[in-house]
Design a protein around this nucleic acid. Sequence first.
DNA 1: TTGAAAGCGCTAACAG
DNA 2: CTGTTAGCGCTTTCAA
Lengths: 340, 340
Amino acid sequence: MPSSIKQVALQAGVSTATVSRLLNTPEAVSAETAGKINQAIAKLGFRPNFNGRNLRAGHSRTVGVVVPTLSNIVFAQCLQGIELAARALDYSVMFTATEYCQEDEAAAVDLLLSHRVDGVILTVADASTSATLDVLDKEQIPYVLTYNQPQQTARLSVSVDNRAAARDAVTHLIALGHTRIQMLTGYFHASDRAIQRYHGYLDAMRAHGLTPMTPIEVARHTGVATDYLQCFADLQQLPSALFCSNDLLALAAMRDLRAQGLRVPDDISVMGFDGIPLGELMSPVLASVVQPSEQIGAVALRTLVAAIGHAPQADADGGPASCVLEHAIRPGGSVQKLSL
Amino acid sequence: MPSSIKQVALQAGVSTATVSRLLNTPEAVSAETAGKINQAIAKLGFRPNFNGRNLRAGHSRTVGVVVPTLSNIVFAQCLQGIELAARALDYSVMFTATEYCQEDEAAAVDLLLSHRVDGVILTVADASTSATLDVLDKEQIPYVLTYNQPQQTARLSVSVDNRAAARDAVTHLIALGHTRIQMLTGYFHASDRAIQRYHGYLDAMRAHGLTPMTPIEVARHTGVATDYLQCFADLQQLPSALFCSNDLLALAAMRDLRAQGLRVPDDISVMGFDGIPLGELMSPVLASVVQPSEQIGAVALRTLVAAIGHAPQADADGGPASCVLEHAIRPGGSVQKLSL
DNA sequence: TTGAAAGCGCTAACAG
DNA sequence: CTGTTAGCGCTTTCAA
């Protein structure tokens, strides 16, 4: 059983208030007293109990994080960025995953709220229909979305411009001579980003007078049901390039294509989205849209802390704002340059 | 400001004690009263404050997790396993990373202890010299090591048998006709696992009458200083196979080797350790030792919870025990079968 | 089955 | 600069 401020006070021969002062406003304590207290602290191995502190203070210097899964390195990097930034600001992180399950999403937030986190960072399936966000709104808990890029509301978010990024990716493919470009994506209902990226795909195709192809939706979880490859049985139908809604999907698709005897990029080009670091280690390098995941996390954390600092309704002044970070096209050998 | 048990009591016309009872031992409250209270709870949107509860109860149903980094997918998967298992047992997770920095390790544990987590799951650089573990021991906080496989003490840990696993890997290489096998590893001082794996390498080489080669130590952080490739300038010196202490290193090495004009596996074979899922999507498939990272996390969490349940000194009976999980060799095209 | 009351560890007025 | 005191939200005896 760890010792309390009371025992430290007793040991040092001062009041608990003075010990508390040393902990919080050391300059308000005389050097002599400080010495005695520090000695007592060391002797007892005292460590403040944040539960007591939080209870009293009404805040916890803790943020909650909710991501779909850590199996996708993208979210792991984001969490990494959050944790690093949090530590720098003396915040702690409670972490939860949802496995892309809506109920778990709500349950996760509920739990975090019971822990009285000061705010929440989360990525939801669809920001525009999320009951979870409504709860957060109603309870007046500051929160910041990551990856989600809400269209309508004034919700705080940190992301890239998914639509523009996808447009750039497809434009990149077009610039390399591709015209039959098809999108391979995780279920739209599980990711509002995927929808935005599809719109970007359409933008680029139309801007170049190309006919969009019907997107192929597959379960995002690895494995990747290879059923979709049926589409390619007829080689006449084969697109020249596949634009995938994320890198994991792209990698899985490449594997599946190879298993079908198709060569990448000779027979078909593949481009991803996310720009995971491993994509660059492979041969051929996975062409992709790089989004700065770790930075997304870091910025989200700082935005959240800023939001926590601001009174809920005092956002008339320059309070924290949503942030759209830069994306970049990473060319790679997984995409072939076609002779025109 | 969220409402408290007091306001619920007032609203329902009962005492706070009764509300508390409904929350903790519902069967001890009459149906009628329960109805009134539940109504009040719903009306007020009440959510218990765990800070108050923890303070009073002396435990938090929260565990702390400390990993080196989330940039290595291995630890992300482990954390994923921990979180899933924790949720199933109604535990919450506070997460911290150390970036392989010893001081951060100590600071992280300190912070977690201030939050009064009930226990800690952690991976340290070197379990046998970690001051952090000594702190945990002294404070009587239950903890479980992951990946670390302490030699001497009775410390709880969950890992594979690193030495045996490495031995199996190198034996696999030998079985495929390799004799000039060299190990490429992250700094030994940053990972006791790497040392154990090196011993496994030695075991296998010696068991087959082969001459061990001097291991190449490099900074583990990606980038991978390509200086080590100097070793290979003299093609006479070139090993036929490189056994890497982890998959990220293996992938980076393959990239670097290719950049040098060496073909994998034609000119040199590469085998990794960890068995990250992405290794299987690549072409060629990365041969590796698969360790069940997510399971390591899940088992660690359950072991920790068991340890929390047990009184510190009551481990005479069948208390929680360390666990060595099965590893598996994943063959892959990154390793060439040599004609003998 | 319910209520009254004490106290977990800490901080923030308010006095001195 | 320091002590006294009250109370954050909750659980848990002890009585009723």
